[in-house]
Design a binder for these strands. Structure first.
Length: 643
RNA sequence: GGGCCCAUAGUUCAGCUUGGAUAGAAUUGCUGCCUGCGGAGCAGUUGGUCGAGGGUUCGAGUCCCUCUGGGCCCGCCA
C-alpha cells in the first residue's frame, strides 16, 4: 500500500524535473534496486535522456539530480507534500536512486498494516464476474498428483481473484457420459467385477481407478466383445433414462464424492458441479449448433475421410478441420465443450435449474444443475453470464481450448472472454516411477497414466507427508493428544503439498519425486507456518497491551527489511491477480517469512529492555503476522499458532 | 511434416512481460550458532562459458534469427 505511495512520489518528482528540463512526458521507469546500497527505489530516466543529450548516463544523472531533483525535493519538503522520499542521488551505474525517510516510511506502513482491516486489498476486478473451471477429473478414478496441480492452481487463482474484487464462481465439470466412465460400467455390468471393493476398506474412487479401470483395459485385447458393450453403454449414457444410465449415475456420484473428499482435504472450494450428460440432454447443444450453422462456422462434410460428419473450420490453415458431430450423429468431446463454454459467459439461454448438491468443508453449499424444474431452488446464485470464463487445464489441451476460444470470440466481439489457463503437466521422476514398479528406459521422467496404473495417488502423497510432519510435531510436543498432533500434521502436510504445486511457473513441467516431495525444510509451505508460529509465541508471551507504539524506533536493518516487504503486499497481489500467476505470491510469502526469520534471529523483542523499542517491535510482529496470515490464506495455507 | 513449451550452480528453480548496477533462492557438501522469543531456523563457504552460433544496441540471461537437445499436441478418444 505504502510502496505505491513511494513510487507515485518519485514519479511526481521526475515528471516535474523533466518538465522543467523541457522534456515533459518523456517515458521512464521506476524499479526495485537489487541491493539495499542502491537505495529504496531506482529510476532509469538517465539512460533514456542521455540518448537525447548524447552524454554518459551517469553524467546526465548527476546533473539532473543536482540541478532539478534536489531543488524540487527541497521545495516539496517545505510545502510538506512529500512524506516518503528523503533524497535522490546519482549512481555511477547510471541510475538515479531514491532514499526514503525510514522513520516516516515505517510509521506509515505499519500503522496502515495494523489498522486497515483490508490491508493488502487492491481492486483489480471491479466486481466483474468470473466463471473459473478447474479439477474436472473423469469420474472413474481417484485423483493423482497431476490432478492435484490442477486443483491447487485453480483454487489459488480462485482465492486471489476473489480477494481482488472479482465475483468468482468455481465450476467443476464432470464428464459422466464419456469413455472412461463407460469402461468401469463395462467392468461392473459385463465383466463380472463386484461393485463393492473386496475385503479391505478402500475409497471407492480408488477401487474404480486403480483396479477396475486398469483391469478392464487389460481385458479388451482378449475380449473384443467388451468393446461392443462399451459402444452400447456410451449410447445409453447419451440418451439417459435407461436402467443402465441410472446405474452409471450412481457409480459416478459415488466416485465424484470421493474425489471431492480429496479436494476438500486440500482445502479447495467449489460452487457448482456441471454434468456433461445434462449438457447433452438439455437443448444447449441444439441452440449452439444452430448458431454455429448460421454463422457458417461448421459444415457437413460430403466427401473425404470426414464424410457424413459436421466439422469445424480450423483457425489456422495448417490445422485440420475438426469433427464435432460424428457420422452416426453422436457428439465428440469438443462439441460438448463449446455449448458449455457459451453457457458460462451467457451467450445462450440457461436451460438449467439448480439444486443444492452438498455442503462443503468451508460451510458453503456446493450446487449442481438439474433438468428437473420441480427441484429448482428459487434462491440460488447466478452461475451463468459471467464477464469472463477461465478454464484451468494442462497444456496438452491447448489446441482444443484454442478452438473453443476462437469460436467464442466469434459470438461476441470481445477478445479474452474465454481464457485457457494452461500449465505443463506433472510427470514422475524415473526413481519414483521405478519405485512404482514401472519399467523405465533411460528417460528422465515418465508421464502418468491412469489407464496403465502409472501414477502417484493424491491421498497417498498427503498421507506420506503427514507421516513425516507427525513425527516432527510429536517430537516437539510429546504431551499433546493424538488428535491435536493429527490436526497439526494434516495442516502441515496440506501446506507442503499446496506450496509445492504453486511455487513453479505454469510453463514448467513438474518432475515429481516422492522423496523430494516430503521435504519440510527450506522453500516450503511449513517454512511459512514455522515463521508464523514463532511470531505467535512472542505475541502470546508478551504482556504489553497494544498501544500507539513509537514505530519510528524500528530502524535496524532487519526491521526495515520486513517493513519494506510488508509495504509491497498489495502491489504483489495486484501483480499475481493480473498475470494469473500464483507463483508470484508464493515467492512473496517466502520472502516475507525469511525477513521475519532474520529479524527473529538478530533482534530481541521480549528481552529488549527499552520499553518503547519493545512495544514497537511487538507492533512489528503483529503487522507481520497479519500480513502473513492473509498472504498464506490466499495460497490456501493455514497459519498455525503452533506446530 | 505442422504447432506449442522448456534449456541459468551437482540437483530443483527465480530473474526474461518493460534490456542496464556484482545473475539470485532452495537443496546437496563443508564450517559455525540453542544456560537467549521454538535450531522445521540463522550466518558463512564451495559451486555459473545463463544450451550453441549469429544479429539489434552505448549495453543482452532478458529482444530478433538460425541451430542443437528435451517435453507435449496434431483421432468420427476424452
Amino acid at each position: 500500500m505504502t510502496f505505491r505511495k513511494l513510487v507515485s512520489e518519485a514519479e511526481h518528482l521526475i515528471s516535474i524535473g523533466l518538465s522543467n528540463l523541457g522534456h515533459a512526458g518523456h517515458k521512464f521507469e521506476l524499479l526495485d534496486p537489487p541491493k539495499p546500497e542502491f537505495g529504496d527505489l531506482s529510476s532509469n530516466v538517465a539512460f533514456e535522456l542521455s540518448k537525447v543529450y548524447d552524454v554518459k548516463p551517469y553524467q546526465f544523472a548527476q546533473e539532473f539530480v543536482e540541478n532539478y531533483l534536489r531543488p524540487i525535493i527541497r521545495d516539496e519538503h517545505e510545502k510538506g507534500s512529500l512524506s516518503m522520499i528523503a533524497s535522490a542521488e546519482a549512481h555511477p551505474g547510471g541510475y538515479i536512486n531514491f532514499r526514503t525517510n525510514n522513520d516516516t516510511f515505517s510509521e506509515i506502513t505499519l500503522s496502515r498494516a495494523l489498522e486497515d482491516p483490508s490491508y493488502g486489498f487492491w481492486d483489480v476486478g471491479g466486481g466483474r464476474r468470473v466463471n473459473l473451471e478447474h479439477t474436472s477429473v473423469n469420474p472413474n478414478k481417484a485423483l493423482h498428483v497431476g490432478h492435484l496441480r490442477n486443483v491447487i492452481l485453480g483454487d489459488v487463482i480462485y482465492r486471489i481473484l476473489q480477494f481482488t474484487n472479482h465475483a468468482v464462481k468455481v465450476l467443476n465439470y464432470v464428464d459422466d457420459s464419456g469413455l472412461q466412465v463407460a469402461d468401469i460400467i463395462v467392468a461392473f455390468k459385463f465383466a463380472g467385477f463386484p461393485v463393492e471393493p473386496p475385503s479391505k476398506p478402500m475409497k471407492f474412487d480408488r477401487y474404480c481407478g486403480d483396479y477396475v479401470y486398469v483391469k478392464v483395459n487389460e481385458l479388451y485385447p482378449t475380449k473384443p466383445s467388451l468393446l461392443e458393450k462399451r459402444r452400447y453403454i456410451l449410447k445409453e449414457l447419451e440418451v439417459g433414462q435407461s436402467e443402465l444410465a441410472k446405474f452409471a449415475s450412481t457409480i459416478v456420484l459415488r466416485v465424484l464424492l470421493d474425489q471431492l473428499t480429496t479436494c476438500w482435504r486440500m482445502k479447495a472450494h467449489y460452487d457448482l458441479v456441471n454434468f456433461e450428460s445434462q449438457i447433452v440432454l438439455s437443448d444447449l447443444w441444439d441452440r449452439t449448433f444452430d448458431w454455429l450453422k448460421n454463422k457458417g462456422l461448421v459444415q457437413l462434410a460430403k466427401e473425404g475421410k470426414n464424410a457424413g460428419c459436421w466439422t469445424i473450420n480450423p483457425e489456422r490453415a495448417s490445422d485440420q478441420e475438426k469433427v464435432i458431430v460424428r457420422s452416426d450423429g453422436t457428439l465428440t468431446y469438443i462439441a460438448k465443450d463449446i455449448p458449455y463454454a457459451a453457457w458460462k459467459v451467457g451467450f445462450v439461454n440457461d436451460p438449467f435449474s439448480y439444486r443444492e448438491f452438498c455442503d462443503q468443508w468451508d460451510n458453503t453449499v456446493l450446487w449442481t444443475t438439474t433438468l428437473d424444474i420441480s427441484q429448482d431452488k428459487s434462491e440460488h446464485p447466478d452461475f451463468t453470464s459471467a464477464d469472463k470464463a477461465i478454464t484451468v487445464i494442462d497444456s496438452r489441451q491447448s489446441r482444443l481450448q484454442c478452438i473453443i476460444s476462437c469460436v467464442l470470440s466469434k459470438f461476441q466481439q470481445s477478445d479474452n472472454i474465454y481464457l485457457h489457463l494452461g500449465y505443463e503437466p506433472v510427470s514422475l521422476s524415473s526413481r519414483t516411477a521405478h519405485n512404482l514398479g514401472t519399467i523405465i528406459d533411460a528417460k528422465h521422467s515418465v508421464q502418468m497414466s491412469g489407464r496403465k496404473g502409472i501414477q502417484v495417488n493424491a491421498d497417498d502423497l498427503i498421507d506420506l507427508v503427514k507421516l513425516k510432519a507427525y513425527e516432527e510435531v510429536s517430537s516437539r510436543h510429546p504431551g499433546y493428544s493424538k488428535e491435536r498432533l493429527e490436526m497439526l500434521a494434516e495442516s502441515i502436510a496440506v501446506s507442503a503439498v499446496r506450496y509445492n504445486m504453486i511455487k513453479y511457473d505454469l510453463d514448467k513441467n513438474i518432475v515429481f519425486d516422492i522423496t523430494e516431495s516430503i521435504n519440510l525444510d527450506g522453500d516450503t509451505g511449513p517454512y511459512l507456518q514455522y515463521a508464523y508460529a514463532r511470531a505467535q509465541r512472542i505475541l502470546e508471551k508478551s504482556r504489553e497491551k497494544y498501544c500507539r507504539a513509537p514505530l519510528s524506533k524500528l530502524n535496524s536493518e532487519p526491521e526495515i527489511r520486513i517493513i519494506r516487504v510488508i509495504s509491497k503486499f498489495d502491489l504483489v497481489i495486484e501483480n499475481a491477480a493480473r498475470s494469473l500467476k500464483p507463483k508470484i505470491l508464493a515467492k512473496y510469502v517466502h520472502t516475507l517469512a525469511t525477513a521475519f526469520n532474520v529479524f527473529y534471529e538478530t533482534t530481541p523483542v521480549l528481552k529488549e529492555d527499552n520499553r518503547e523499542i519493545r512495544i514497537a517491535r511487538i507492533a512489528l510482529v503483529n503487522a507481520f503476522c497479519k500480513c502473513l496470515e492473509v498472504a498464506s490464506g490466499l495460497l490456501g495455507i493455514q497459519s498455525l499458532k503452533e506446530m
